[in-house]
Simulated assay, not measured.
Amino acid sequence: LDTSPVAINFGFFKVRLPLIVVLVVMVIIGMIIAWFFGRDTKEKTDHKVTFFNKKEKKIE
């Protein structure tokens, strides 16, 4: 594990954290962003599937 501290400059303040902490936090943020955008498209897809299923039931 790489525990050497790295400096992250946010413009108005600077943080020094171990590299492993920075990497884990970035992976978690990436997963949250991917889940958020994936959830939105899944709801749209589920809505379309529900719509088509209702339409098919009316024909039968």
Score class of each variant (00 low, 15 high):
Phe51Met: 14
Lys57Trp: 08
Pro18Tyr: 02
Trp35Pro: 00
Ile59Ser: 07
Lys58Ala: 09
Lys48Thr: 06
Ile8Met: 15
Val25Ala: 12
Phe52Asn: 04
Phe12Ser: 04
Val24Asp: 01
Val24Thr: 09
Arg39Pro: 07
Asp46Tyr: 01
Phe51Lys: 13
Glu43Lys: 06
Lys54Phe: 05
Lys48Arg: 13
Leu1Gly: 05
Met31Cys: 08
Val27Leu: 11
Ile32Gly: 11
Lys57His: 11
Val15Asp: 05
Glu60Met: 14
Gly30Tyr: 10
Asn53Glu: 10
Ile33Ala: 10
Lys14Asp: 10
Ile59Arg: 06
Lys48Met: 07
Pro18Arg: 01
Trp35Val: 10
Gly11Asn: 05
Val24Ser: 06
Lys55Met: 12
Phe13Arg: 03
Ala34Thr: 08
Thr50Gly: 08
Glu43Cys: 03
Val6Phe: 09
Asn9Leu: 08
Phe52Glu: 00
Pro5Gly: 02
Ile59Phe: 07
Arg16Phe: 01
Ile32Phe: 13
Leu23Pro: 01
His47Thr: 10
Gly30Ala: 13
Lys48Trp: 07
Lys44Arg: 11
Met31Asp: 05
Leu19Ala: 14
Val15Cys: 11
Leu17Gln: 10
Val6Ile: 15
Asn9Pro: 10
Lys44Glu: 06
Phe37Leu: 00
Val24Lys: 00
Asn53Cys: 04
Val49Thr: 12
Leu19Pro: 04
Leu17Cys: 04
Ser4Asp: 09
Pro5His: 01
Gly38Gln: 13
Ala34Leu: 06
Lys14Val: 13
Ile28Arg: 14
Phe51Arg: 15
Thr50Ile: 11
Lys54Trp: 05
Asp46Leu: 01
Phe10Lys: 10
Glu56Pro: 08
Lys14Thr: 04
Glu56Cys: 13
Met26Lys: 06
Met31Thr: 03
Val27Ile: 12
Val27Ser: 11
Ala34Asn: 09
Val21Tyr: 06
Ile28Gly: 11
Gly11Ala: 01
Asp46Thr: 05
Ile29Val: 06
Pro18Thr: 00
Phe37Pro: 00
Arg16Asp: 02
Ser4Ala: 13
Asp40Glu: 09
Leu1Trp: 03
Glu56Arg: 15
